[in-house]
Amino acid sequence: MRTAMVLLGKDLRLEMRTLETVPAMVLLALVTFVIFHFGLDRDAIDGQLAAGVLTVSLLFSAMLGINRLFVSEREQGGFDAFLLAPVDRSAMLVAKSAAMFAFLVVLEVIALPAFALLLLGPPLGPALPGMILILLLVNLGLSVIGTLVSAIAVHTRARDLIGPIIGLPLLIPALIATARAAGPLLSVHGASSPSGRWLLILALYDLVFALLAYAVFDFLLED
């Protein structure tokens, strides 16, 4: 656990100093909102449409972050150093997932109010607690799957291609659940709490893939 904390600290410090990934993710989300405004030709959207637009925008930004996740390790020889150290290999999974989770939280802290400002018709206030819950759950899934896929993709020749094409189908169930759970919250006279069924699916998905990733991640680092 200490190793994971050290690695996480390193990743966060690196991001704070270079400001490489998170600003790009935020910018991409904002640009996507603008594109959706013109693509849909709507000033304000609500309900399921709003949930879909938000989910897709966040997914695009997340893919950007996922692609960059292991690049510095590969370029600067971080993998070799990590493999030489007598520590548990799973620490890398925990640290990278936690870093990705933190990036996503920062992204959403900026992107969600921006979405409410730019596109969302009904006020965000009443839906906020439910949205936070949904987003936390989906962030967990995105970061675990993202770390796993990124670790596979980073050693392949076409790594910018392999990451998204494996990652997107794997994430579809989580995205369905997110969009469906968020839809009623964002409608005009919406529900104030998300339906438990979708939260359960998201939680189950997170749990299964977290365990799976924990089981197989060691094999991705051996050399």
Partner: peptide, 25 residues
């Protein structure tokens, strides 16, 4: 995506390992 992934890893041993991880997940 299984086959494109295999194509893009050259080292045969690593290819097998990564493909197995993918197949399990």
């Amino acid at each position: 995506t299984y086959q494109p992934m295999r194509f893009s890893i050259e080292d045969p041993e690593r290819q097998s390992r990564y493909a197995s991880v993918f197949a399990i997940v």
